[in-house]
């Protein structure tokens, strides 16, 4: 068996993979892992989004991978440059949990659901269809997408492994 190449995507980070390489991000809590996949060119992309909108950025030279509204356009641009076509892309989402469910009242603490909503809004602009999602809940997730099959593997402490 061929050794899989794993490309790590950090918190507030994004990247793409080709030729069967695997994109991986660990410990998604309220952050959302957005994966895009172009079935024809076999190019996969992943963004680990931390906050819903760059409107709240208080530093001028912010990291565009951090916010949903700046990370997704950048990811799509990178994948396009690598040969993917936005109209063939499909999306899968994971994460956006409320890690401390008891604290769901204030807006900061509802950040998970807000992140998911914002990612969906941005995808709908293109539009890129959302094939599947595993979002919400109160637990963390580690995800991997295979750039050959587009299958998204999701692992959590309480619920084991599932595939989307």
């Amino acid at each position: 068996m061929k050794q899989e190449q794993i490309i790590k995507v950090g918190m507030a980070d994004l990247n793409f993979a080709v030729q069967g390489a695997v994109l991986r991000t660990t410990g998604l809590g309220s952050c959302v892992g957005v994966t895009l996949f172009d079935t024809k060119s076999k190019i996969a992309g992943m963004a680990h989004v931390m906050l819903p909108s760059s409107d709240i950025a208080r530093d001028s030279s912010f990291n565009i991978a951090k916010y949903a509204d700046t990370a997704l356009p950048e990811l799509i641009r990178l994948m396009k440059a690598a040969g993917a076509a936005p109209d063939r892309m499909v999306a899968k989402l994971a994460g956006g949990a409320q890690m401390f469910a008891q604290l769901g009242k204030s807006d900061t603490l509802r950040i998970g659901p807000r992140n998911v909503e914002s990612c969906k809004n941005i995808l709908s602009v293109y539009p890129i269809p959302i094939l599947a999602e595993d979002t919400g809940g109160n637990y963390g997730r580690t995800i991997e997408i295979d750039s050959f099959t587009g299958i998204l593997h999701i692992r959590s402490v309480q619920h084991g492994v599932k595939e989307l």
């Binding site: 918190m11 507030a12 660990t26 410990g27 998604l28 809590g29 309220s30 952050c31 931390m50 906050l51 709240i56 950025a57 208080r58 530093d59 912010f62 990291n63 951090k66 949990a97 890690m99 401390f100 469910a101 008891q102 604290l103 900061t108 950040i111 109160n138 637990y139 963390g140 997730r141 580690t142 959590s156 402490v157 309480q158």
Partner: peptide, 25 residues
């Protein structure tokens, strides 16, 4: 009031960083 979670450290700690998220990395 305290909240408790048993989970991946990354998922839990990112919660405490949201205020910083708006300022930098």
């Amino acid at each position: 009031v305290p909240s408790i979670a048993v989970d991946m450290a990354g998922a839990i700690l990112s919660y405490g960083l949201l205020q910083f998220g708006q300022m930098g990395d």
